[in-house]
């Protein structure tokens, strides 16, 4: 297997060809914020938090979908990147109704963590307070669209790992929302196997288990990476 060597924030990394910059950064112990990427499902480069600078390339590149190349020199924490990341997180907070104090995921939320990571102490952008609705029709789960950041992890995990494709994205732009079935209430979608993978995949409190309290909110995100390796390499233990 071919191996590529590169430099991320002055740390030398050797990693197999075909790996992404995000994987290489993880290998090097360099933290890069991300929201839409998750181990075990495909990467789509949508949240733009993992953008990095690569010397010799005048565009910012999403680390989650950029393959490593020999001799790459990567910077993950330039002032420009830090400023853009913070703006990205502010835009996400201003877009939905992310009221941490009343959210089941408070203290267990990737969006909250990313806000801390990028140093966001307030949003410079006007909060939009959209009225997006809540669907509680499923017997075990609920989805609060107000807390959704449209990362589409639920869409991908349901399609790629569970194979049910209950979720998709409807509409466009600011009107986008996660849609279940053929725009039916979640509880009426017969394709849903109630496996709960979307609950585990959701980075915020948008998809939740009914009756679960903030203290009980736990997720098993490693499950997806495990399932994906298990299926590809037949390693069924973890």
């Amino acid at each position: 297997m071919a191996v590529k060597t590169l430099k991320i924030d002055d740390i030398d990394v050797a990693i197999e060809a075909g790996a992404t910059l995000l994987q290489a950064a993880q290998e090097a112990g360099v933290p890069i914020p991300k929201l839409c990427a998750m181990k075990g499902i495909s990467s789509i480069g949508a949240c733009r938090l993992c953008l990095v600078e690569v010397e010799g390339i005048n565009k910012l590149l999403p680390a989650c979908v950029t393959e490593v190349a020999e001799g790459m020199v990567v910077h993950t924490q330039t002032p420009k990147l830090q400023e853009y990341r913070r703006m990205t997180v502010e835009l996400i907070f201003a877009e939905g109704n992310h009221v941490c104090s009343i959210c089941v995921a408070n203290g267990n939320c990737e969006l909250q963590d990313v806000a801390i990571e990028v140093g966001m102490d307030h949003s410079r952008f006007t909060y939009r307070f959209p009225d997006r609705g809540v669907d509680l029709s499923h017997p075990s789960f609920g989805i609060d669209h107000n807390r959704c950041i449209l990362c589409t992890r639920c869409v991908r995990v349901c399609d790629e790992v569970e194979g049910a494709h209950v979720w998709d994205v409807a509409n466009r732009g600011a009107a986008c929302y996660i849609v279940s079935g053929l725009n039916q209430p979640w509880g009426e979608v017969s394709a849903c196997t109630s496996c709960g993978k979307c609950v585990d995949a959701c980075p915020t409190g948008a998809i939740f288990r009914k009756g679960e309290t903030t203290g009980e909110k736990q997720r098993d995100r490693d499950k997806f990476a495990f399932l994906s390796t298990a299926r590809e390499k037949r390693e069924w233990t973890r």
Partner: peptide, 9 residues
């Protein structure tokens, strides 16, 4: 900066 100072909620 950091969780102790700027975590919402």
């Amino acid at each position: 900066v950091g969780r102790d100072m700027i975590k919402f909620g």
